[in-house]
Design a protein around this nucleic acid. Sequence first.
DNA 1: CGGCATGTTGACCATATTCAATTGAAGTGG
DNA 2: CCACTTCAATTGAATATGGTCAACATGCCG
Lengths: 246, 246
Amino acid sequence: MDSTVKAPDNRSLLIPQFENISTLSDREMTLLQALEQDARHYPVNATLTAEGEFSDRLFMLKSGWACATRILADGQRQVLDIFLPGQILGLREMGMRHSLTEFYAMTDALACPFPKQRLTEIFEQSPKLTDLFFLAMAREQSMLIERVTNIGRRNALERLAHFIVEIKVRLTLRNMPFELPINQSMLGDTLGLSSVHISRTFKQLKTLGLLDHQNGNLHILDLEGLIELSGFDRAYLDTSPEWTRL
Amino acid sequence: MDSTVKAPDNRSLLIPQFENISTLSDREMTLLQALEQDARHYPVNATLTAEGEFSDRLFMLKSGWACATRILADGQRQVLDIFLPGQILGLREMGMRHSLTEFYAMTDALACPFPKQRLTEIFEQSPKLTDLFFLAMAREQSMLIERVTNIGRRNALERLAHFIVEIKVRLTLRNMPFELPINQSMLGDTLGLSSVHISRTFKQLKTLGLLDHQNGNLHILDLEGLIELSGFDRAYLDTSPEWTRL
DNA sequence: CGGCATGTTGACCATATTCAATTGAAGTGG
DNA sequence: CCACTTCAATTGAATATGGTCAACATGCCG
């Protein structure tokens, strides 16, 4: 029920993430805070950046879920990233004038747009923050290669299970309760499956006693079961201790 | 026949790439050159870094092909990246102590190992190079999302065609002739298909008059046909003008 | 109450996998 | 130079997995 708008307090989401890895100076904290000013509200399905559109901005996601999608020539859609609060949207398009993908809000969301230029300025002023942004991007890539593996080599059952565990882990790292504000059509477009097959696969996971649907909310009944079934590898999302302290 | 060892000259591969986007000072060139010292020879199938192994090094690939792979619990393999000369191997593992994936030489290769630390030093000394490395990583991610799209939403025929075009484009950007030193089993593991199906799909592409096999060498007969069939989008690999000049 | 979006189900079909046999090409050693 | 081995590629047959289409159910919101 609550991936919705909140964070009226202007507490930074970046600072705690980064301090987890390194110690920041006041100056560095100020630089980060500048990226989290002027939160704007985006209602469900609002577009932040359209595919192909000129864009010189990134977005710091303060609350809610967002995603990046790509539409193929024949109208099919592929979801490329699912963003949770604290992530920056568009890092991979730093060097591009036009967006390769559409970014949009999957739930009501708060996000702070800021010019790409500002990141470059940070690189000029703080090598440590540079490292940290580099790491953020590396972590994003790690998620992406997991997705490639997931889609490339697992069947529907394992794939869906894996995805659910991934989301569960990412939410847990943020101290957020599990939820899945994604319809089955988009889930299909995320996992390379049809929406119909997502429905069947959910049913299968329920039959196996791993999941449960209660009044519209999805519940994980057996996380370990899901992990085992999907062959999930924790390493790729864990922060410390695997991530080097700087 | 010639993705093999050469480059006895110690000409930098990074400098021209980067100068394509920005102008470098002498100091910056020196920093880059330091990454391309001490080329080591890796024979076909040699491992540069094993999966799960401790690693504090990256590799600058001078010649030959390399790749990153991941082995699943059930023994299946997924190829995650294919690296061509001029690329840096391991960028996404900058912050990790242990490698998520295996890196190995697909052909005879020359590569220069250097400590991750050196990249951090570059960040400290040159914001411009920082930008450029950030962009290199962004470009890598762009390739990755194309792969996700490819595997997630295209059928075998389109997928293989798309892959071939991608390789063709990347080789052309390097002024290298087209070749494909990859066996069908690995191709399958790259594209999320079985090796048997790769064989059948090749046959189909030949029947369509798009490809040809001459004494063991693959030839592209109709690049435009492949592009159209696969829905290939040039934007994601082009360097200028899409990539911002810094 | 009605309308629209989302999810579920069944029947049928398409696509790709698996398994096994065969062919082919590239070394290797006699 | 010719078996002989080995590994990759090819082919066919049977099977599995997931897609498509269409009907129907459900839930939400106005």
